[in-house]
């Protein structure tokens, strides 16, 4: 095992896959010589050279078009969109072209490509560089969507995403880049569509994603210590495919479900989880299904306001505690 930061794990995952598959290439703004604005691609240009690691102009449509066209003609691609907010300027590529072309051509084309992007808040960047937009991607048929919370999962899911024959939107959380974790020093390959029970418990299930996972874990520890409430925490990890088996089995055990979502409230991913549990596990429930989310607002820049907006350890703690009382 080696201790890596989450940002180092991004590069490690990409490097592992580029070593395995000499046809795999990557492109994006400042990804090569600069090593990425978040330093998530440091060392890749040196190891793999400028033909395989390409700096691009600020042209998000051209970046994703290049990724789509190359992947449909035999060259797998990892494309970076620097901030997930910028997905909005190339959403046609994602939602209309990459996601739909396989279906529209009745399976004539495949898109083995990964679109990596820095998602999420808590970095005081304001409304256009902080959004959590995983729910945008989740609602488009044809895409797969993952968002790791640990360095080990980052490597494992990167490998799984690259090896998957479908387009995968890979959300890296910008406020997790500095966090550290153990990563095995052998080849690491995860699977899309597998949630992880990161803390076992019996009184309530809390489903969280990305930055919300460590917050949910901390809240769970406090609930145990201070209130004697035993919380099971699920790291959803993969929104599409969605591991509903793990979710439903957990709710069957705990009879309560809370979701902790950084995306703004309306149509967040937790609403889908809750609707599934409401339909399929209703008679196992002991109480309401509860969503803990960012409000329906653009994110503010000021630290005090942003901290109020995004679900905090305290908010998770208080919500679970008062709901179970």
């Amino acid at each position: 095992m080696a201790e890596l930061t989450y940002r180092e794990a991004v590069a490690a995952g990409i490097a592992q896959e580029m070593r395995r598959d000499p046809s795999l290439v990557m492109l994006g703004e400042d990804v090569a010589a600069a090593g990425g604005v978040f330093k998530t691609t440091v060392g890749l240009l040196d190891e793999f050279g400028p033909d395989r690691v390409r700096d691009t102009p600020i042209s998000e449509q051209a970046i994703l078009g290049a990724a789509m066209g190359a992947s449909m003609t035999g060259v797998p691609v990892i494309a970076e969109i620097m901030f997930s907010d910028f997905l909005a300027v190339c959403w046609d590529m994602i939602a209309n072209e990459i996601a739909k072309s396989r279906y529209m051509t009745d399976g004539q084309v495949s898109f083995p490509l990964v679109i990596r992007t820095a998602n999420g808040g808590a970095a005081r960047f304001g409304a256009q560089h902080s959004q959590s937009v995983e729910n945008w991607a989740m609602m488009i048929p044809g895409l797969k969507v993952v968002a790791p919370s640990t360095p080990a999962d980052t490597v494992a899911l990167m490998a799984a995403a690259v090896r998957d024959p479908d387009p995968v939107i890979f959300f890296e959380h910008k406020s997790l880049f500095a966090t550290k974790g153990e990563v095995p020093e052998v080849e690491v390959v995860g699977r899309l569509g597998e949630a992880s029970i990161v803390r076992e418990g019996s009184d309530a299930t809390v489903a969280a994603l990305a930055l919300m996972v460590p917050r949910a874990l901390e809240a769970a520890d406090r609930l145990q210590q201070e209130e004697g409430i035993s919380v099971e925490v699920i790291d959803v990890r993969s929104l599409v495919p969605l591991d509903t088996k793990t979710l439903l089995a957990s709710v069957e055990k705990t009879s309560r479900l809370f979701t902790v979502e950084e995306n703004p409230r309306l149509c967040g991913w937790g609403a889908e989880l809750i609707s599934i549990v409401g339909e399929e596990a209703f008679w196992n429930l002991d109480g309401p299904l509860v969503r803990i989310t960012t409000p329906h607002i653009p994110l503010p820049a000021a630290a005090s306001l942003e901290d109020l907006a995004i679900p905090s350890v305290d908010r998770i703690y208080e919500t679970v505690k008062s709901s179970l009382r």
């Binding site: 046809s23 290439v25 033909d51 449509q61 051209a62 994703l64 078009g65 290049a66 990724a67 789509m68 066209g69 190359a70 992947s71 449909m72 003609t73 035999g74 060259v75 691609v77 046609d92 590529m93 209309n96 072209e97 072309s101 051509t105 084309v109």
Partner: peptide
């Protein structure tokens, strides 16, 4: 015939990708 694209503009970028792929291969 790699496709007919019905939203203006996108397929010029996608065509680049196929050309890039041919160049690399």
């Amino acid at each position: 015939m790699m496709g007919s694209y019905a939203i203006i503009g996108a397929h010029l970028c996608i065509a680049n990708g196929a050309a890039w792929s041919a160049q690399m291969r």
